[in-house]
Design a binder for these strands. Structure first.
Lengths: 206, 206, 206, 206
DNA sequence: TATGAATGAGCTTTCATTCAT
DNA sequence: AATGAATGAAAGCTCATTCAT
């Protein structure tokens, strides 16, 4: 009896277990130090089974990377063609990152340490994700310049670098100092800091 | 008089050759994919000699890392205890990074891809460098708040994250897109972009 | 019934093959000159598989060493607490060594050249084996002194050194001169020589 | 002036320094773990100079080995053709070994751990030394059998193995337990133990 | 699907020896 | 005689990947 269970726990169950285990191990050890056998052990499955679900270690990493970027893009794509309200849009991006600390802390960590930088893992696909992000954000910035929300004397590409860099700097610091945001209030304070400086500047305003 | 140093073949010659070769290879391949024998070949010396000058591959990386940070700290420490002029100080930091693109492009690349992030290479010494940078910058920010140059409603630590993040975002983008600043004018424009947004904000100011 | 063990290819098959191959190669080349790849080739398996069964070359040696000592101790421990008959006991020890020449010539060789001496391979575990042997034999000697079988004017520890030394001297000579005992009669003659001298002395007795 | 000093400190001084340093280092680390550069440092001379005095590490070991054996043989050869007094002769051999603990403890150690056994260092020359020792001792034993001092029912070769084995067993134990003989009385007791058992046996004599 | 034994290329590091000075 | 920089072969170990079952 209980044949059903073998149906319920289909391909996806194991695959997800491997995925999660990989996130955990890669977060702890880094991609290069992450061992397939540790991922398998962590996932509670056998060594070789990893290769039934993922062609290689590299592809497993790609899957994680793709998952992360999908999340990011779903936020940005949600803006659609709508004009205006750039602060609201950027706030959404900031909050997306901050929220990930709670829902998927491993992935934030991996993003900072393994995806965001590091020649090591640099394939064309991975570079393309960045380019896409930058392009999308540049559109947002350019649109906001067109609508008069943002100043025109700085290239939209530059604004993109500055905004994303500031955000990433913040996130990285939280990762490296192991201080994820611990409350909604703190997230609000952080988001406000980033957005205030980006929009109004850090100079004291008399 | 003064025999040319290239004739004297002092200890430093070979050591420097190894150092430079390591920068080149690590930049191209990343630390993990960088092979000692490629570094040796690049330096024009034998395999074993690398180990005559550096105890291990890891220590060779440490030497590069240390060299980089010394440059950064010499800029910041140059500020001394002097009060005021925070914009001038931050401009100096920005220009230091931009100037490195010309003088030591390999090291900028390595900083972005291998030093700045990546758990892989994370030792205590390397973490300490970051902490030191952040602490020093936080002092600068706090000082500027005290003197009324910067707004008080955002923590100096946050300002640090945002400023350094924005700068690093810029530098990283230039590295990944392989677009180093090509002229003084361009550097000026970039520096101005970062500083303008940081101090005055990106909002259009009517 | 009972499928032949050679068909089942259990874990033990390969492990034993490696063990035997290691004995052969270490005997021929010595521990330091023994190469893992030669052991693997000799065992008919791949290089990496050695490390599947043994954590390191050193641990492989430990396994051999342990196997040897277990044999020795099983003989001595077989004496139990029984009193008397010291000559029978020492004869058992002598015969154990002589018998090993037939059943496991490689191990005798290794014992003489690699285990018995040589600081090189000296770990705590290995020293402990010696200490244990000496302590056990000292008990036997002391017991025989108590029961009046052995003279009391020489310390039991000294008797131990002399007896084991004489035995080992014999075994070593046979190893180095490559003259293992070739018949039961010869073994008897050798054992008798050792025991006779140890118990009655080499002086001519008129 | 003082040219003379360069003559006084001739070839022999440095060579002896290297020799002694090698003894010390090989004793501590074993032949394989002994590093040329450590020997040089210990001798207070430069790395490459070792190779002016000794063709190779192996030859340096040979020199030590030769030195040791010369001492041993000078004792045995001192017996000349004289007949009789076998106990006095064997006593001389025993005392030679015991005395070396004081005069050249390093060499005793090396003899036990590196010369006496260990396939590692086994060259034809080294094997020949052993053969020579055994042959000489066999002559002594045979002579003593001829003169009626020793029993005839045990082959002289066997007596040799037993006697030298017992002696070496003793010496080895002192080396491994790091308990060299500390007084003349103790040496006497040890020598007496070996000789008494060898000549009269360990049986209690009623 | 699932297992884990089996493979072997590839890497860092060591160190005896050589050699220019 | 003396130095120590320079050489490079060699070896142990790792680990992603494959494969027989």
């Amino acid at each position: 009896m209980q044949r059903s269970s073998s149906n319920q726990h289909g391909r996806r169950d194991k695959e997800a277990a491997i995925f999660d285990a990989a996130c955990k191990v890669i977060r702890e050890k880094g991609f290069h130090q992450a061992r397939i056998d540790e991922i398998a052990r962590q996932a509670g499955i056998s060594y070789g089974l990893v290769y039934h679900y993922y062609r290689s270690k590299s592809e497993l990493f790609d899957a994680i990377s793709r998952e992360w970027w999908n999340g990011v893009f779903s936020v940005i794509d949600g803006f659609g063609e709508e004009r205006g309200e750039v602060r609201k849009k950027l706030a959404a991006v900031v909050h997306y990152f901050l929220d990930q600390f709670e829902t998927r802390p491993d992935m934030v960590h991996i993003f900072v340490t393994e995806i965001s930088r590091s020649t090591v893992n640099l394939t064309q696909e991975r570079l393309d994700f960045f380019r896409k992000l930058f392009d999308k954000m540049e559109s947002v910035m350019a649109g906001a310049q067109g609508s008069g929300e943002l100043r025109n004397d700085i290239r939209p590409r530059y604004l993109t670098y500055i905004f994303l860099g500031a955000l990433e700097g913040f996130v990285s610091a939280m990762v490296f100092e192991n201080k994820p945001p611990r409350s909604e209030r703190q997230k609000e304070r952080i988001a406000n800091g980033i957005l205030e400086v980006f929009f109004s500047g850090a100079s004291s305003q008399e």
